[in-house]
Design a binder for these strands. Structure first.
Length: 560
RNA sequence: UGGGGCGUAGCCAAGCGGUAAGGCAUCGGGUUUUGAUCCCGUGUAUCGCAGGUUCGAAUCCUGCCGCCCCAGCCA
């Protein structure tokens, strides 16, 4: 018997509803409006909705909540479908649109009028706002509130027939203009919009509002639990009110949970599109974007995203989760499966003075240190090599166990070498190291047990592949850029660094979308758009944990 | 000064009247031809505050404080 994982409050409700027999099957829906790209916040909702249904043998609809034409487009619905699939979820034949129900929704609106609980208001939008009152003062009734059922029916029919211009009339629910809940002060139900719809074409010129369409769409689909974020909590009485009036066959229940916010990221659609439009990033799928498309292009595996939201949990408390938590999930899932390779990001030349000129040896390198079954690949070794600039220090602190003048280091899967001479240019910069290798220390041979404190990675100059590598950092300098009055003021100017690197030959065959670990550096993948066989373009997904860098940073801070 | 929510360690989060799980981060240590991984160990948490009920309260009651959301013919 395994321990029961603690249930979040939503799964608890669902569990209870199944146990009590209230429902025999759980049906959920993920209902994005196709007016932008999905982001990290949506990942939570997707995993929750598809997750609870899958766990209980239920079903989930992917419903495009397209009740507001003009803001929505097929480009976004394509992106949404792609992103949900990529995350690992399948709606099978349950792809729907709120617009699929426009006919039923219209009939229900007529029913509301017949019941005497909806009326056509002919006030302007501004007048309606004035009548609404404020948070502390009640609103006042519209002079059109008491129109007869016949007149309302006629007016609504003519709205539908296209006899009026946008904004001339609006259908409103007749509830309570004095309600302390603003949503209950005679909310709009249908408005006139003479623009084509992304799915329904030009069939309609009146469109239902979210509050009216959502609960009924849920009911039509037999949704049992309609899960949404906290800002809709105040809408629940209205959600229930429509269901009370219309008594559909199925009665869905709305439950709210808190959004997931990621530190150093924004999720406002307005700001996200500003980043794109102002050219601050290169598109919605820029690897720095907190969009699903961006994270996919960055190389984050879907399993890591799922694990991340699982660890975050489902509650009603506002969360601002540290970036490190996501990165840990990415490292955790990539660590087991990513093959290891070697690449030098900032090359420094090493010449092995005692290594025969023209000689090339083949070193066997493991593709994964913990999984020998993942095989090996061959790495050419020669007299001239590239090593990382960071792996050499002329005046090194005692705990620095990489290369230093007179010091020794092991070349991973190669030989132990010793630094004999440092070559500098006129500016005094180190441009080359003259080293000697110990022929008895070849990796894997019996006599190779000699220990040195450090092991560094390398690439043979003659055999190296040139590549452009993009190093990404957080887009913002503030943990909560959402709170900044102007997000431009908290942009990280160094969120992208492009460098020219040298790769080991095996990386010539790096497949698109395949993540690899560059040993001692991090996880990388070929960019899905810009990479080509002739010109490699590689993204850094995430660095490895680096306790040496941490020590260095602490030392720097101590010095002031 | 209206209504609706939320407050458990730096960030998440269990807990549902019987004396504070876990994850991430942090800090130690071990293993290691990736300073990675892995493995151990590491937290005086005034359970927002103050009262009350109770043998016993993070859990129940009262009052207060703080934060979030709501005045679209957006979702």
């Amino acid at each position: 018997m395994s321990e029961q994982e603690p249930r979040d409050f939503i799964r608890q409700i669902i569990h209870d509803d199944l146990e009590s027999g209230k429902h025999s099957e759980i049906v959920t829906r993920f209902p994005p409006e196709p007016n932008g790209y999905l982001h990290i916040g949506h990942v939570m909702s997707i995993c929750l909705n598809f997750g609870v249904a899958a766990e209980t043998g239920g079903r989930t609809f992917l419903r495009l909540d397209d009740t507001n034409p003009g803001k929505e487009s097929p480009e976004y619905v394509d992106a949404i479908k792609r992103d949900v699939h990529w995350l690992g979820f399948d709606w099978e034949d349950r792809l729907t649109h709120a617009s699929d129900y426009f006919g039923q929704l219209h009939d229900s609106a007529v029913r509301l009028i017949e019941l005497g609980v909806a009326y056509v208001d002919s006030l302007s939008a501004e007048e309606i706002r004035e009548h609404r009152g404020t948070l502390t003062e009640p609103g006042t009734n519209s002079p059109f509130r008491d129109r007869s059922v016949e007149e309302n029916l006629d007016l609504f029919r003519r709205m539908h027939a296209g006899e009026f211009g946008d904004g001339e009339h609006v259908l409103r629910a007749k509830i309570d203009m004095a309600s302390p809940n603003m949503n209950m002060r005679d909310p709009a139900v249908y408005r006139i919009r003479h623009i084509p719809h992304q799915n329904a074409g030009d069939e309609w010129c009146i469109y239902p509002m979210y509050d009216f369409a959502h609960g009924l769409s849920d009911a039509y689909e037999g949704i049992t639990h309609s899960l949404c974020t906290l800002e809709f909590e105040d809408h629940r009485p209205l959600y229930d009110w429509f269901l009370d009036q219309l008594q559909p066959e199925h009665r869905p229940r709305q439950i709210e949970f808190s959004r997931l916010n990621l530190a150093y990221a924004i999720t406002s659609k307005r700001k996200l599109s500003a980043l794109v439009e102002e050219g601050i990033v290169n598109g919605w799928d820029d690897p720095r974007m907190p969009t699903i498309a961006g994270m996919r292009r960055r190389g984050y595996p879907p399993a890591a995203m799922r694990e991340f939201v699982k660890r975050a949990g489902v509650t009603k408390k506002d969360k601002l989760i540290e970036m490190g938590a996501l990165e840990t999930c990415v490292r955790d899932t990539l660590g087991d499966v990513a093959e290891r390779r070697m690449a030098v990001l900032r090359p420094l030349k090493v010449v092995l003075t005692n290594y025969p000129e023209g000689q090339v040896e083949t070193m066997e390198a493991m593709n994964h240190p913990a999984n020998p079954e993942m095989g090996t690949r061959e790495m050419p070794f020669s007299r001239e090599l590239w090593i990382e600039q960071d792996d050499f220090m002329e005046e090194a602190p005692r705990k620095f166990f990489r290369l230093k003048p007179g010091g020794e280091v092991r070349l991973r899967f190669g030989y132990i070498i010793k630094c004999d001479e440092v070559i500098k240019n006129d500016a005094g910069e180190v441009v080359e190291l003259r080293c000697s290798y110990d022929p008895d220390t070849r990796s894997g041979t019996g006599s190779s047990d000699r220990k040195v404190k450090g092991t560094i990675h390398w690439v043979s100059c003659e055999h190296a592949i040139d590549a452009t590598v993009r190093l990404y950092d957080r887009l913002f300098t503030e943990a909560n850029p959402n709170a900044a009055s102007d997000f431009h003021s908290v942009l990280n100017p160094n969120s992208l660094e492009t460098i020219s690197a040298r790769l080991e030959p095996a990386l010539g065959e790096l497949a698109a979308g395949q993540a690899v670990q560059f040993e001692r550096l991090g996880y990388f993948c070929a960019d899905e758009k810009d990479d080509a066989d002739e010109a490699r373009v590689i993204n850094r997904i995430v660095t490895l944990r680096d306790s040496w860098a941490k020590l260095e940073k602490q030392a720097m801070q101590k010095q002031g």
